[in-house]
Design a binder for these strands. Structure first.
Length: 572
DNA sequence: GCCGTTTTCGGCCCGACTGTTTTCAGTCG
C-alpha cells in the first residue's frame, strides 16, 4: 500500500510551488496563498486525510483542496511538474541564502547565467556582477558572507545551547541605560527542541542605548543590521540574535507576535478579525484606536481568551481549549520531587552514587533512582546480575545512612533485538524500578520494531519505557514504532513513558507526549545524568512535557515518596 | 489562489533596515 502523505510533505509541496512562482515573478497574492496554506497545513492538528471538508479550512479554496486531494491519492501535481520545468532546479537553494530573494536570483540568472550554488559562487568572484543595477560592492560582500553562512550553519541550534547564550545576552542588555524589560521570544520561548535564531524584545526609555550596547557585546561576531527599533547580530557561535525595541504600551503585543508560532498567530488574527479587531505586533486595534498591548494577558483578553502558555502556541487545539476553559494546568519544575534516570560510576557515570544523591538533595529532591546500564551495553561497563546485586546492596547501605531521602535501586535494562530482556527476571524482581531501553538495532522495519517492544513491554518486568524513540537531536532519527499497537500494552501493564530530559534527546518529544497523554498514558521525567551537572537538565524535560500538554499529576516523579513507592510495589 | 453583511470583482499586512540610490528596490520577519 502506498504510504499516506503527511501534512509536513503537503506543506513542502506548496512551499516549493510558492518559491518557483516567486522566481517567475508571479502574482504576489497567489504566492502568499500557497505559503499561507503551507503554514496552515504544517501546523494542523490532525492529518489532512482525516479532514472531510478541506474547503472549510481558512485559506483553502477550490483549487488548493483539489490539489491536496490529489496529493493524498498519491499523485504528483501537474502544476508542480510543469513549474519545475520552467526554472533551473538549483535556483531554489539560492533563495535560502541571506540577502538573496526572488528578484536577485532572477537578475543573476538572466544576466549572468547563474543556475545553482556553484555558478552563484563563481559570479560573486567576478567583476561583472558589479555592473548590474542594484549590485554594489557592499552587497556583493554581504552575499559572499551569506553564502558561507549557508554552507556552514544550515543546522539549527539545540535548545540548551541557544538558551544559555540567550540568557547571557539578556543579562548583558539589562545593563543598558534606561532599559526596562528584556524578554526572550520566538521558538526559544516556546521551548522548541531546536531553534533558528534568538529573538529578544526590549523595552525602556532609550532604544538607541540598547542597540548601541548590543553591537558592543563582546560575543558579537558580525553586525547584520542596526536601527532604532531592530538590530541583528551574529554571535561567535554562529547563532543569529535579533533584538527589537518596543514601547511599554505595546510590549505585550510585540512579545505575543514574536513568540509565535506563525500558525498560532494566524489563528489569533483570524479571531480578531471576526470580532472586528485588528491585531499586530503594535497592539490590538478597534479601528484606529489601540485597545490593548501592554501585556500578553491583555492581548488574549480582548479575544476572550485566557493567557496561553508559550509552549502550547502551535495552533494544535490550544485556542479551542482556551475558549472552553480547558487549557491544561501545565507541569512546572517545582513539581518535580526526584529524578528517575541517573547513572553512577558503577557504569559510565562520572560520580559515586552518594555524590549524585547529595546533589539531588541540594536540588530539593526527595528521591532519586540510580539506573545504571545492563550488561549488553559493554562500552558503558554495563552490569551483569552479580554486579547489579552488589550495587543494590551498596544502595541499601546508603539508604540506611541517608535521612529524609530515598535512593531507588534501579536499572536501565537493555531491550534486545528480539524483545528479550538483558537480565534474568530473578534480579529484576529485586529492583525498585526497571527502565526498559533500546540501545541497538535502531533501523528495524516498523513491524519488527513494534513486535520487539510489544514483547519486552509485555513481559511485565518494565515500569518505565525510557527514551522511547531513541532519537538523538540532529544526529539520529527516531526508531519506527506503531504506537497505536503499543498503547494498549502501556495501559494494561501500567508502564510510564519517559520524557528524557537530556537536551540531546528530549524523548518522548512534545508531540508524542501529547498523543500518549490523550490515550491515558502516564509519564516519568529523567535527566539521564552521567555527571552532577547533568541533574540540572530536568528543566528541559519539563519544557518538553509542557509542550505535550502534560500536567503534574500525570508524571510519577511529581508524586510524594509513599505514593510512588506504592505504585512501584503494586506492579509486581 | 482566497474571500465576501462594503460580496463574484477587486482587494489581499507592512514596517524596518540596508545598499545603492538622489527618491527607491529588495529582503526580512
Amino acid at each position: 500500500m502506498a504510504r499516506l502523505i503527511t501534512n509536513q510533505e503537503i506543506a513542502r509541496v506548496f512551499y516549493e510551488i510558492a518559491d518557483i512562482l516567486d522566481l517567475k515573478n508571479d502574482n504576489v497574492f497567489k504566492i502568499r496563498a500557497y505559503r499561507r496554506a503551507g503554514q496552515l497545513i504544517e501546523g494542523f492538528e490532525k492529518p489532512l486525510s482525516q479532514v472531510a471538508d478541506l474547503e472549510s479550512l481558512p485559506g483553502i479554496g477550490k483549487e488548493l483542496s483539489e490539489k491536496i486531494r490529489a496529493l493524498l491519492r498519491g499523485e504528483e501535481l501537474e502544476t508542480l511538474k510543469n513549474l519545475r520545468k520552467e526554472v533551473a532546479p538549483g535556483l531554489l537553494a539560492l533563495l535560502r541564502i541571506r540577502g538573496m530573494g526572488p528578484k536577485r536570483v532572477r537578475t543573476l540568472n538572466e544576466k549572468l547565467g547563474v543556475k545553482d550554488l556553484n555558478s552563484f559562487c563563481r559570479a560573486l568572484g567576478e567583476g561583472e556582477i558589479l555592473n548590474l543595477a542594484g549590485f554594489g560592492p557592499k552587497l556583493v560582500d554581504d552575499l559572499k558572507k551569506g553564502l558561507s553562512e549557508f554552507q556552514e550553519y544550515s543546522k539549527r541550534t539545540r535548545l540548551d545551547l541557544a538558551k544559555t547564550q540567550a540568557e547571557a545576552l539578556v543579562e548583558y542588555l539589562k545593563e543598558a541605560k534606561g532599559v526596562g524589560r528584556v524578554e526572550v521570544a520566538g521558538s526559544l520561548r516556546r521551548r522548541l527542541e531546536t531553534i533558528g535564531d534568538i529573538d529578544l524584545l526590549v523595552t525602556g526609555k532609550d532604544p538607541k542605548a540598547v542597540m548601541e550596547r548590543l553591537v558592543n557585546y563582546p560575543k558579537v561576531r558580525e553586525i547584520l543590521s542596526k536601527g532604532n527599533t531592530k538590530s541583528s547580530v551574529v554571535l561567535e557561535s554562529g547563532v543569529q540574535a535579533d533584538v527589537r525595541f518596543f514601547e511599554p504600551k505595546t510590549f505585550g503585543a510585540g512579545l505575543q507576535y514574536f513568540t509565535g508560532s506563525k500558525a498560532h498567530n494566524i489563528a489569533i488574527r483570524t479571531i480578531a478579525k471576526q470580532k472586528g479587531l485588528k491585531i499586530s505586533e503594535y497592539g490590538v486595534f478597534r479601528g484606529e484606536k489601540l485597545i490593548a498591548g501592554r501585556t500578553e494577558e491583555e492581548v488574549y483578553q480582548t479575544l476572550d481568551l485566557p493567557y496561553i502558555p508559550p509552549e502550547l502556541r502551535e495552533d494544535r487545539g490550544e485556542i479551542q481549549a482556551g475558549r472552553e476553559d480547558k487549557l491544561p494546568e501545565l507541569i512546572g519544575l517545582k513539581d518535580i520531587r526526584g529524578d528517575l534516570q541517573v547513572h553512577s560510576e558503577w557504569t559510565d557515570g562520572a560520580s559515586p552514587i552518594l555524590e549524585m544523591a547529595e546533589q539531588a538533595k541540594k536540588l530539593g529532591y526527595e528521591y532519586l533512582a540510580i539506573t545504571d546500564h545492563s550488561k549488553s551495553q559493554r562500552q558503558t561497563g554495563g552490569l551483569d546480575e552479580k554486579e547489579l546485586r552488589k550495587e543494590f546492596q551498596e544502595i541499601d547501605r546508603l539508604n540506611q545512612k541517608l535521612k529524609g531521602f530515598r535512593i531507588f535501586k534501579g536499572v536501565e535494562l537493555d531491550i534486545l533485538k528480539d524483545g528479550s530482556l538483558d537480565l534474568p527476571e530473578r534480579i529484576l524482581k529485586t529492583a525498585d524500578l526497571v527502565l526498559g531501553s533500546v540501545h541497538s538495532h535502531f533501523n528495524l522495519p516498523k513491524p519488527d520494531q513494534t513486535r520487539r517492544l510489544l514483547k519486552a513491554l509485555g513481559s511485565g518486568m518494565i515500569q518505565i519505557f525510557s527514551h522511547p524513540t531513541g532519537r538523538l537531536i540532529g544526529e539520529r532519527e527516531p526508531i519506527m514504532i506503531d504506537w497505536s499497537r503499543l498503547v494498549p500494552v502501556l495501559l494494561e501493564k501500567k508502564i510510564a513513558v519517559e520524557i528524557n530530559a537530556s537536551p540531546h534527546r528530549l524523548d518522548a518529544n512534545g508531540d508524542l507526549a501529547k498523543y500518549l497523554k490523550d490515550q491515558g498514558v502516564i509519564f516519568s521525567l529523567g535527566t539521564d545524568a552521567h555527571t552532577l551537572g547533568g541533574l540540572k537538565d530536568m528543566e528541559y524535560g519539563v519544557f518538553t512535557a509542557r509542550r505535550g500538554w502534560v500536567e503534574a499529576e500525570e508524571v510519577i516523579n511529581t508524586w510524594p515518596l509513599n505514593k510512588l513507592e506504592n505504585w512501584l510495589r503494586n506492579r509486581r
